[in-house]
Computed example of a mutant assay.
Amino acid sequence: MKEVVVYTDGACSRNPGPGGWAAVLKYGEHIKEISGGERHTTNQRMEITAAVEALKTLKEPCKVTLHSDSAYVVNCFKQKWYVNWQKNGWRNSKGDAVQNRDLWEALIAAMEPHKVDMKKVKGHAGVAWNERCDELARAAIPK
């Protein structure tokens, strides 16, 4: 399997409000930057969207190290929240409907062909590729 390193980020000018997402995919010396935005969204939706779109970009099954500054995204998989959500009919531990279910389902599906290792990176801490994603996500916010 090819080994791909991915950095993702999401941004909102208000929360909710217009938002942007971005990802940087690195394979060897090759670097691909992708981004997009929505007129009305939340920061969390943009964080998940960045991961979904990054994985959908891959053309074959890969070993992926996905870096995100979103504890929400990373913890969902590190702590396997999604397993209980699915078991409980997409209800959280309080019995409430899981927010962003559509995107969680899309992310689970996008991860399926790959071996994905989620890594938490500290946001706005000088991590070059995370800073680049932040820049791209902010630039993608619709005006």
Rank of each mutant, 00 (worst) to 15 (best):
P61D: 08
N43E: 04
K115Q: 15
M1R: 11
C76A: 15
D134C: 01
S35A: 09
R132S: 03
K143D: 09
D96G: 08
G10E: 03
K87L: 09
A51G: 09
D134N: 01
L66A: 07
W85L: 02
M118E: 02
K59I: 04
D96R: 10
W129K: 03
K78D: 10
G37R: 01
V83Y: 12
T49N: 10
G123A: 06
K119E: 11
A11D: 00
V98T: 07
D102C: 15
K80W: 05
L58I: 10
G17W: 03
G89T: 09
L136V: 07
E131M: 03
L55V: 07
W104K: 01
A125D: 14
E60W: 01
V6N: 03
A125V: 10
R138Y: 02
H40L: 14
C62E: 11
A110T: 12
A23W: 05
S68D: 01
C12P: 02
C62I: 08
K122D: 06
A140C: 08
S35N: 02
A54I: 10
V121E: 05
I34E: 01
K120N: 01
K120V: 04
D117I: 08
N88V: 08
Q99M: 15
V4H: 09
S68P: 06
C62T: 09
Y82T: 12
N130V: 04
N15Q: 06
A140K: 09
Q44M: 13
S35Y: 08
V74S: 00
G28T: 01
C12A: 14
H40N: 14
N15Y: 06
K122V: 15
E33P: 03
Q99V: 15
H114V: 11
E60T: 11
K2F: 05
G20F: 15
R45D: 06
W21G: 04
H124L: 12
K94V: 00
E38I: 04
I31F: 09
P16I: 04
V5T: 15
N130Q: 07
V127Q: 08
H30E: 12
N92S: 12
T41P: 04
K32V: 15
W104G: 02
A71M: 11
S70W: 05
I141D: 07
